[in-house]
Design a protein around this nucleic acid. Structure first.
Length: 217
DNA sequence: CCAGGAGCCCATGTTACATCA
DNA sequence: CCTGATGTAACATGGGCTCCT
């Protein structure tokens, strides 16, 4: 608990505050463990005043509490309880807001992750195709000529190698070589459930045994 | 200085009532 | 009128802090 800024006032029994005129006499008062329970609600005026006090200070100094009680015709204990309850309501509201913010962030990351997954899938396909082509061209000794042919195959599969793809391939290559360089295409937000699947994403190179330097050629 | 009690407050949970759809 | 849901004043409990002896 954080340090308190106020000093406790000397002990004053609750009973000594009886000079304050309290709420209306309990019309529907019931007994609960020998204590009278008056459930009449505070007036709009009282609430308004309490709320404005709460807005300027969520914790009441004893002096202020007594003053407020006098102004509103309530018992200081009622003021104290109202502030306690108000803080509890405020806190639960805070938690609700924090939850909402976190959820928004999570949803945002989830959609980013999904699009990265799709991107990975597409890159895998490209790499597979290029790998196959390389095998063919190496086997048939048709270096540059073969590559042109590859282009035709790629197009037929709706896959083009552009500069962006090259950059991405570079990233994979760097990653494989243990480089600490961070790829601008990677989202390093391994949060919660993403972490496991993210590992799969980053380990993609393990399953494709293709010399990347050759690929770029 | 230290220990212990008194008196207060706090956070949290619960109860009981008022109000409303 | 009845009923379930919701809001809230008041209470209970356990723990921390300050003050005093």
């Amino acid at each position: 608990m954080e340090g308190r800024e106020y000093m406790y006032s000397p002990a004053v029994p609750e009973g000594e505050y009886e000079i304050f005129t309290c709420q209306q006499p309990p019309q529907t008062a019931r007994k609960k463990k020998n204590k009278i329970v008056n459930k009449s609600r505070f007036s709009a005026e009282q609430i308004k005043s309490l709320e404005s006090s709460f807005e300027s200070e969520t914790r009441l100094e004893p002096r202020k509490k007594v003053q407020l009680a006098r102004e509103l015709g309530l018992q200081p204990r009622q003021i104290a309880i109202w502030f306690q309850n108000r803080r509890a309501r405020w806190k639960s509201k805070q938690i609700e807001n924090e939850y909402k913010t976190l959820k928004d962030n999570y949803d945002n990351l989830a959609s980013q992750f999904e699009s990265l997954k799709k991107e990975k899938q597409s890159l895998l396909i490209q790499m597979q195709i290029l790998g196959d082509l390389l095998e063919k061209t190496h086997g048939g000794n048709e270096d540059s000529k073969g590559l042109e042919g590859n282009g035709a195959v790629c197009k037929s599969n709706n896959v083009n190698i552009n500069s962006e793809t090259k950059a991405k391939l570079n990233c994979f290559q760097e990653g494989m070589e243990g480089s600490a360089v961070m790829c601008p295409h990677e989202d390093k937000t391994g949060i919660g459930n993403f972490e496991e699947e993210g590992q799969g994403l980053l380990n993609v190179t393990e399953h494709v045994h293709v010399p990347f330097a050759s690929l770029e050629k």
